[in-house]
Amino acid sequence: SIVTKIISIVQERQNMDDGAPVKTRDIADAAGLSIYQVRLYLEQLHDVGVLEKVNAGKGVPGLWRLL
């Protein structure tokens, strides 16, 4: 499923980069989806406690990390 793919992308990127959070844009590119589509999935995963959003604010790139 797309959700499983997104989780594995975040996991893979974090492992490659010493646990650093992953940008929404990088996840979207790797999943082959638009940034808006991916954001909806990321928000859902956040709501159920799978991911945390590391930063927030208007015009700030979203950074995500697995919990």
Rank of each mutant, 00 (worst) to 15 (best):
S1E: 12
I2D: 04
V3L: 14
V3N: 04
T4M: 13
T4G: 10
K5C: 13
I6Q: 00
I7W: 04
I7R: 02
S8C: 15
S8Y: 09
S8H: 11
S8D: 08
S8N: 12
I9L: 05
I9C: 05
I9E: 01
V10C: 05
V10L: 14
V10F: 15
V10M: 15
V10E: 00
Q11K: 13
E12G: 06
E12L: 10
E12Y: 13
Q14S: 09
Q14V: 05
N15G: 09
N15M: 13
N15Q: 10
N15S: 12
M16K: 13
M16C: 10
M16P: 03
D18V: 07
D18M: 10
G19Q: 06
G19K: 06
A20M: 09
P21L: 07
P21D: 02
V22N: 00
V22K: 02
V22T: 04
K23S: 15
K23I: 03
T24M: 03
T24F: 01
T24V: 03
R25K: 14
R25P: 04
D26R: 03
D26A: 08
I27E: 01
I27Q: 15
A28T: 01
A28M: 03
A28Q: 02
D29N: 11
D29Q: 13
D29V: 12
A31P: 01
G32N: 08
L33W: 02
L33G: 01
L33P: 00
L33T: 03
L33Y: 03
S34Q: 06
S34P: 14
S34H: 06
I35F: 07
I35T: 06
I35M: 12
I35N: 15
I35D: 06
Q37P: 01
V38G: 03
V38R: 00
V38F: 01
V38N: 00
V38I: 10
V38K: 00
V38Q: 00
R39E: 14
R39D: 06
R39I: 14
L40N: 07
L40E: 08
Y41W: 08
L42H: 00
E43Q: 09
Q44M: 15
L45I: 06
L45R: 00
H46F: 09
H46W: 12
H46R: 14
D47C: 15
D47M: 13
D47L: 13
D47E: 13
D47F: 12
V48F: 14
V48E: 13
G49L: 03
G49A: 02
G49W: 02
V50D: 06
L51C: 02
L51V: 09
L51A: 01
L51F: 04
L51R: 00
E52V: 09
E52G: 07
E52T: 05
E52K: 03
K53L: 08
K53S: 04
V54Y: 05
V54R: 01
N55P: 09
N55M: 09
A56G: 12
A56I: 10
G57N: 06
G57W: 05
G57M: 05
G57V: 06
K58E: 13
K58W: 03
K58M: 09
G59W: 05
V60A: 14
V60E: 15
V60K: 14
V60R: 12
V60P: 10
V60T: 12
V60F: 11
P61N: 15
G62Y: 15
G62S: 15
G62T: 15
L63M: 12
L63T: 08
L63A: 13
W64C: 06
W64D: 02
R65C: 09
R65P: 02
R65V: 11
R65K: 10
L66Y: 13
L66S: 04
L67V: 14
